[in-house]
Amino acid sequence: MTINEIYEQLKEEYGDSIIELIENPPCDSSIIVKAESIFDICHTLRDKPGFEFDYLMCLSGLDLGENLSAVYHLYSMKHSHKVVLKTIVPKDNPKIPSVEKIWRTADWHEREAYDLIGIIFEGHHNLIRILCPYDWEGYPLRKDYKEPEYYHEMKVPY
C-alpha cells in the first residue's frame, strides 16, 4: 500500500483529524494528524486488515520552536509498507495520548521523549525520566534549554 492510499483511507475514516499529507522527496512522506485522535488512528493502523502496522520503528520528540512534535515511524512486517505520522502540540500544554498500549515498544520511547523534550504522554503507565536523573530539572533537548550551574553541588559548566 502506498502512502497516498493509506492517506486516502485514513481521511475517509477520520476526516478532520487527518490534517495533511506532506511529500518531501527523497525523505519519507508524512501524515500530520491531530494529537487527540492519535490513539484511535494508531489502533486502526495496527489492527485493520490491509494496514497491519505491527512494528513501531521509532517514536521521537522534536522541538519546533513554538510547538513540540512527536513523530511515529510505523512498519508492517506482513505487507512491507511503512508510514510516518506526525503530531504537533503547543509547548505550554504538550499532551499527547500514549500509544504504549498498542505497541509495547513505545514504553521507553515515550519515556525518552518525555525526559528530553518534555512531551507528556497521557495514559502511559510509568511516565518517569529514563536517561537523566529523576530529580533533574528541565528538558535538555529543548532549544531554549539552559544547563544548570550546579547539580548536587557539582559544577556543571566547564
Binding site: 537523566c132 535538555p140 534549554y145 544547563e147 544548570p148 557539582m154 559544577k155 556543571v156 559548566p157 566547564y158
Partner: peptide, 11 residues
C-alpha cells in the same frame, strides 16, 4: 555536555 562532569578531579 549538560550531563557530563567536566573532569573526575572535581569530585
Amino acid at each position: 555536555g549538560y550531563h557530563v562532569l567536566k573532569g573526575v578531579d572535581r569530585i
